[in-house]
Computed example of a mutant assay.
Amino acid sequence: MAGLTAWFALVERGHVRAGEVVLVEGTGGVALFGVQIAKMHGAQVIVSGSADKLARVAELGADHVVDRRSADWAAAILALTGDRGVDHVLELVGGAHLGKAAQVVAVGGHIHLIGALDGFEASTPVMPILMKDITIHGIGTRHRRALSDLVSAIDSTGTKSVIGAHYPFEDLPAALDHVDRGPFGKIVVEVG
Rank of each mutant, 00 (worst) to 15 (best):
A6W: 11
A9K: 09
A9C: 10
A9M: 06
R17V: 03
E25A: 01
A31H: 07
A31M: 04
L32Q: 06
F33P: 05
A38Y: 14
A38T: 12
G42V: 09
Q44T: 14
I46A: 05
I46G: 06
V47A: 04
S48N: 09
S48C: 12
S48Q: 06
S48K: 01
D52M: 00
L54W: 03
V57R: 04
G61S: 04
A62T: 10
V66H: 09
R69L: 05
A71N: 12
A74F: 01
I77W: 02
L78C: 05
D83R: 14
D83V: 06
H88N: 13
H88Y: 13
L92D: 02
L92G: 13
V93F: 05
K100T: 15
A102Q: 10
Q103M: 02
A106W: 06
H110V: 13
I114M: 07
T124H: 03
T124G: 01
M127S: 11
K132M: 08
G138R: 12
G140A: 13
L147I: 01
S148M: 09
L150D: 11
I154H: 02
V162M: 07
H166Y: 15
D171W: 02
A175Y: 06
A175L: 06
L176G: 00
D180M: 03
D180F: 00
D180I: 00
F184S: 01
F184R: 01
G192T: 13
